[in-house]
Amino acid sequence: MKHIKNTISLSVLLLMFATFVQAQAWEIPDGEKSKTNPLELNAANSEKGFEVYQKNCKSCHGDVGAANFMPLVPPPTDLGSAAFKTANTDGEIFYKMTTGKGAMPSFKAVLSDDERWAVIAYLRAGDKTDATVDKNAKLSIVANPDDKSISASITTKDATGKEVKLVGADIEISIKRIFGNLTIGKGKTNATGAFSVNLPEDLPGDSLGKATIIVVAKRFKQEEKIEIDWATPSKHHDLTAQASIWGTSANAPWWIMLLYIGIAGSVWVVIIYIVLQILKIARLAKKNV
């Protein structure tokens, strides 16, 4: 009976707490509410916003529109839902990100104004960025060992069916590392339709200088890989191979081994010598009796 009482009172308390938390509305100054996004609603800003979102917002709010946010109380909203987007102006979202409240942290010190506006651009743009994917687009990579550069270009077919290289297409070039891809260059293809980066000299491949380069053209949904063998070989310093005083005798420094065996050996020699001398005395004693 007592147990049931406890449960009921606890749930009532929790319910009260939950309503209290929900009832605490954001108080947003009018001046902030009417602010509009200074960034243009284009694919570039949206992509920038997407990157910021992935790094800073996703861990609590989940994927935009997927409603897979963290099960917290109060729940973090799905920022892609129509309800959220219609209920909040750009200025309101910006203010919330800037100041934070309760479990929502303030991003004032972490993200620049531009980055925060870019997230709003991403939220507002939604699926507009995936408008049409050019089916003819083809990504190609050229790796040049001489100047250690990687060059990528996108070819497509024009109205007459002729192959042309795209100018100004976004390309990201990265190198494969164990837990993810490290971006080494990001930009647009130039007038000749190529985007190239130099592999930094101090960025190592494996011990033989091999590495996998990954080139992504996100807007064309294209990804290509290329293996190179001219990266700087990584220097692996095997700490256990060198002579050390750590636990095992297998790689103890030779002078310690020599000293130890020498000392232990000479102690044994002395002991054996003494024992032999004692025996000799005993033998002599018997002989002389």
């Binding site: 790094k55 800073n56 861990s59 990265s174 590392r177 164990i178 891809n181 101090d202 190592p204 692996h236």
Partner: peptide
């Protein structure tokens, strides 16, 4: 952030972002 120092790269456990 966790990674291989020989590769000079670490990856964030939450965001999976890889940096030098």
């Amino acid at each position: 952030w966790f990674g291989d120092m020989n590769e000079d790269a670490v990856t964030n456990g939450t965001t999976k972002e890889t940096v030098r």
